[in-house]
Amino acid sequence: MSELCLTLLCPPTIEEKLLDLLLMLPSTTVFTSTPTAAHGVVVWDLSQTEQVMGRAHVTEIQVIFAAADKAILLDTIRQKLAGTGLRYWVTTVVEAGEIV
C-alpha cells in the first residue's frame, strides 16, 4: 500500500481544533505534533518579538496516511479550517513500519 506524509504548519490559534479534527478522522491513525519555528512567508499575525526574530512559533504536524485517502483528508481540512492560513505539503513515504 502506498503511503504519504502530510506536513502541516499550524498557528497556535487553531492548533487544538486541528489536532481534534485529526483525532476524529479514520485515515489519520498515526501523526505527530512538535513546536517549531516557521520562516519565510507567513500569513498569520506575528507578535513584535516574532517580527524582530524573523520567525513564527507554530506547531508542525506530520500525518502518515494511505495515498488513496489524500483527496478526502485535504478536502476535510480545507472545509473545517478555511481561511486560517494553514500551510501544508505532501511527500511520499519511501518506507514505514514498526520495529518490534
Rank of each mutant, 00 (worst) to 15 (best):
M1Q: 07
E3H: 14
C5A: 11
C5G: 00
L6I: 08
L8T: 00
L9Q: 07
C10L: 14
C10M: 11
P11M: 10
P12R: 05
T13M: 11
E16D: 10
K17V: 10
L18A: 04
D20C: 14
M24N: 02
P26Q: 11
T28D: 08
V30W: 14
F31W: 13
P35Q: 06
P35F: 13
A37L: 15
H39M: 13
H39P: 02
V41L: 12
V41I: 08
V43E: 11
V43C: 13
W44V: 06
D45H: 10
L46H: 02
L46K: 11
Q48V: 07
T49R: 12
V52E: 03
G54T: 12
R55K: 13
R55C: 15
A56F: 09
A56C: 05
H57F: 12
V58I: 15
T59S: 06
I61D: 02
I61K: 03
F65N: 01
A66M: 07
A66T: 06
A67W: 02
A67S: 07
A68Y: 06
A68M: 09
A71R: 06
A71L: 11
I72A: 09
L73V: 14
L74W: 11
D75W: 03
D75C: 04
D75F: 02
K80A: 10
L81W: 04
L81N: 02
G83N: 06
G83Y: 06
T84G: 02
G85W: 12
L86Y: 04
L86R: 02
Y88M: 03
Y88N: 00
W89F: 15
W89V: 01
V90G: 00
T91W: 03
T92S: 08
V93D: 08
V94T: 08
V94W: 07
